[in-house]
Simulated assay, not measured.
Amino acid sequence: MIIELLQPVYGHPENAKNALKAFIDTELKDLDVSYDILPKGKHFSISLSGEDEEVCANFLYNAFGKPLQKSDIVPGEVYKGYISKIEPEQIHIQAGFETVIPASALSVLGTGNAEQIAARFGMIPYLSITFTIPEESKFALFSKEQIDQWWTWKKSSTDRIFVNNATRSQVKAAIKKKKHGRDVYGVEKLGLMESVIVCTEKTDGPGIVASIGKLLSSQMGVMIGSKK
């Protein structure tokens, strides 16, 4: 069987392919399945064969999402997507088809236009999110779970730095090279090439970005913890 993942291919496709291969080899090593990975346009196409191919497919869909058509959407249901573009008037979401979240639907995250709100919460392109589309609406909304997650992070005492176009190992290597090991609690994986750096309470997120930014071909967004 051949499946396609929502996980975007961008930046350095070979790095992303190697990261996906390492993930499959680690997480699915006990399954009876063989596979072949091919970047297909903006997404990955994977050929699976073996007794456990359906189990593998479902696991990968759960981890990285499945491209959807707009006709697949059930109003009110929650779906995976990723941010594709941020503009003052709206945030573009890619889920196999493109939809947008207008600035008027972001008031739950505070005041300002969409670009200002996105910057305040560290949003960057290719960041994985969850969304819903209400009945008879042309626009999407961030899911309640997504909003709650952002507010939980925002109300913490630590800064968070969102990073794209780099594996978790590459981000950790940059932190180590710049001797910031004691300045961060760790690096959490958000996607294949997306992660978040969790700073310690005394660490300034923008300062870490300035320090490691030249070592990574990445976009970075900083969320300042409001309880610092």
Rank of each mutant, 00 (worst) to 15 (best):
A19K: 01
H12M: 12
T152A: 11
S156E: 11
N18M: 11
I147K: 06
K29Y: 03
T132D: 02
V198F: 03
Y82I: 01
W150D: 00
I93V: 13
Y35N: 05
A173V: 02
N165H: 01
S218T: 05
S84N: 12
V198P: 00
Y82Q: 00
A16Y: 00
Y61G: 01
L20C: 03
K29Q: 08
W153I: 04
G186E: 14
T26H: 01
L190K: 03
Q90V: 15
L190C: 10
T26P: 03
L190N: 11
R182F: 08
I224G: 04
D148M: 13
I73H: 09
I129C: 07
F121P: 09
G205T: 04
N58P: 03
K176N: 10
T167E: 03
M123R: 08
Q170E: 14
N62G: 15
Y10N: 04
I147D: 03
L141Y: 12
P75K: 11
E188V: 11
E145Q: 14
A57T: 13
V9C: 02
L5C: 11
I46G: 01
S217L: 11
G213Q: 14
Q7K: 00
A63T: 10
D183W: 00
Y82E: 00
P88C: 12
R182L: 09
P13C: 09
L6C: 09
V171R: 05
D183V: 05
D204S: 15
S226Y: 11
I208A: 02
I46Y: 00
Q7W: 00
M223Y: 07
A63V: 02
I83C: 01
G76T: 10
G50H: 12
R120Q: 12
F44Y: 04
M220H: 08
I73D: 06
I161K: 06
T158Y: 15
L216Y: 09
F59L: 03
S107W: 06
H92W: 05
K202W: 13
G191L: 03
L127G: 11
K155N: 15
I208Y: 03
W153Q: 12
A19L: 12
A173Y: 05
S218N: 07
A114L: 09
G11N: 07
K144I: 04
A63W: 05
N58K: 04
